[in-house]
Design a protein around this nucleic acid. Structure first.
Length: 525
DNA sequence: ACCCTGACTTAGCATCGACCAG
DNA sequence: CTGGTCGATGCTAAGTCAGGGT
């Protein structure tokens, strides 16, 4: 790289960190002052006080960036054959780390060093995430199991434990947040994971038989004299109705995001006569923006909770997630805020799928996507609009108008031919028959219809992420049962990983109903 | 009652490879 | 055959929540 216009030599360690920064030139992290500041602070520590490099502004990382771009290009130019071989070699070398006795391992690789990429306005973005060594890693294995050999000669594991009350196989402390852990867990397809997934959905399903009385109860409390009880009631209402997250407290060294209990007064505004306007950053700094007509008592309560508070003050000042969850436990064993999200997501899917009107396979799966979309919108699962989206839309529109012109031409020709006159638009040596034209016309109409539909679906879904709800919120038994009833191959809606993840749900009866909870009808209160 | 630790689920984005239209 | 698109998968950050200690 260049410093003050002149080449500088860096030690491998110094250069490695410079490279981490250099390759991010074209991301918007590179323009964020916090990112640059944190990177520079950490890199400077490695460079030491006497290094030639003293000022960030004089650093020119372009040579490293160019080198990296060239390496990337080289890799791209490799033949498919070479790539495949390389991949196979890697897989073979890793094979022995990818399995434990019973199942596959999810993340068996340690996280490589890099610059921390926090989401949103994260105060720690750009900090150096140091390399992890065996000395950082705690293993969890069976008492009699042989200790896995340490792959780095001369190094040794931090610790070997035998704890059969937890599911993790190994962990290390996160170098960015030293008090937090990074775990190695079993793969999503593991039967152990499946079991706990099934329990999660069973618990959510159990809510079906309680939900009416819970709603009745919190509705009653909208007017409670006791402020805490009233706040619990309104918060529960929001979590139930809007599928908000619980909203734990956050530290100052994290991005400033909120959930239900941590909403600040400025995040909810009153819009007469009875609407609430939500606008805040939730998990992953994803914006939640919604306008909801609410019950008059809720409206009044929010008004009261906001009264006399300045910006930045908690809307629910008497409440936190543990108080809320403690209250929810009174309704149902194991009930917590997140169960409502699972319940309402699954309920929505089932309700949306109730009347499947489509005749063809394609129409039916389109209806499934539509139902999926409703759930994703409920849960506010978003994605960034893809880079080429608008260009793609324009291309599709152009294509459609092209087809429409063709359609008009076909229609004119058909009219001519029917009257025994020669077609105007056909260039074929032998003029097409009326039947041929009719067939072509029908085909064109179908293509126009399909493309128009594709276009609207694409525009509709440009900011909606369907996958998250499919993986985490919608009881797979609803989907499997629906597929069975409508004779849809399950592979049309679940990909390979979902099929493996939801293996436990595959033999459900076609008449399975999420909302007819059959178990646990008579729990305590 | 509150705080902190620990373990687990949930989340969006990057990357890769299969597939498709031109 | 090739470049572009899109879904599958990997990666790791960011949540939730229980439980133990003070």
């Amino acid at each position: 790289m260049l410093y003050n216009g002149r080449p500088v030599d860096l030690t491998p360690e110094e250069e490695e960190i410079a490279t981490m920064f250099a390759v991010m030139k074209d991301t918007d992290y590179a323009t964020k002052p916090v990112f640059v500041k944190n990177f520079w602070e950490d890199w400077k520590k490695v460079l030491g006080p006497k290094h030639v490099i003293q000022k960030f502004e004089l650093c020119d990382f372009t040579p490293i960036f160019d080198w990296h771009a060239a390496e990337k290009e080289k890799k791209k130019q490799m033949s498919a054959e070479e790539k495949k071989q390389l991949k196979e070699e890697k897989a073979k070398a890793e094979e022995r780390y990818a399995w434990v006795l019973i199942d596959g391992v999810g993340n068996f690789r340690v996280e490589p060093p890099g610059l921390f990429r926090g989401r949103g306005e994260h105060p720690k973005m750009g900090k150096l995430k140091r390399r992890i060594f065996p000395e950082d890693i705690v293993l969890n294995i069976g008492k009699e199991a042989p200790v896995p050999e340490c792959p780095l000669p001369g190094h040794k594991w931090k610790e070997v434990r035998h704890d059969n009350t937890v599911t993790w196989l190994a962990f290390w402390n996160d170098p960015i947040n030293v008090k937090e852990f990074k775990y190695v867990f079993l793969h999503q397809s593991s039967s152990l994971k499946g079991k706990s997934d099934e329990e999660k959905y069973d618990k959510a399903r159990k809510l079906t038989s309680k939900i009416d009385s819970i709603r009745e109860s919190y509705t009653k409390d909208f007017k409670a004299k006791d402020v805490e009880a009233r706040q619990i009631a309104v918060a529960t209402y929001l979590i139930d109705r809007l599928a908000l997250r619980a909203g734990n407290e956050k530290d100052d060294d994290e991005a400033d995001t909120v959930g239900c209990c941590s909403l600040k007064v400025e995040h909810v505004s009153l819009s007469p006569p009875s609407s609430l306007e939500f606008d805040f950053l939730g998990k992953d700094s994803i914006r939640y923006q919604n306008s909801v007509v609410v019950n008059e008592e809720v409206y009044d309560a929010i008004h009261d909770f906001k009264k006399g508070k300045k910006e930045g003050v908690d809307l629910f000042d008497r409440l936190d997630t543990s108080k809320l969850n403690a209250h929810l436990k009174k309704y149902m064993q194991g009930l917590t805020a997140k169960v409502f999200r699972t319940y309402n997501a699954s309920y929505t899917l089932e309700t949306q799928l109730k009347e499947t009107l489509g005749a063809t396979l394609n129409e039916k799966t389109a209806e499934y996507s539509r139902a999926n979309k409703e759930v994703a919108i409920l849960c506010n699962h978003q994605r960034t609009v893809s880079k080429g989206h608008s260009a793609q839309m324009e291309r599709l529109e152009a294509k459609i108008s092209e087809l429409k012109t063709l359609r008009e031409e076909l229609a004119t020709d058909l009219g001519k031919v029917k009257k025994g006159k020669p077609p105007v638009h056909s260039t074929a040596k032998r003029p097409p028959t009326a039947e041929q034209l009719e067939k072509k016309l029908a085909q064109t109409d179908a293509r126009i219809a399909k493309m128009t539909l594709d276009l609207s679906v694409k525009e509709d879904l440009k900011t909606v992420a369907l996958g998250t709800s499919k993986i985490n919120y919608m009881d797979p038994r609803i989907t499997v049962a629906w597929c069975k009833r409508h004779e849809i191959p399950i592979e049309k809606v679940f990909n390979k990983s979902l099929l493996a993840k939801f293996a436990w749900a595959m033999n459900v009866e076609p008449n399975f109903r999420f909302c007819e909870a059959d178990g646990g009808a008579d729990e305590d209160l």
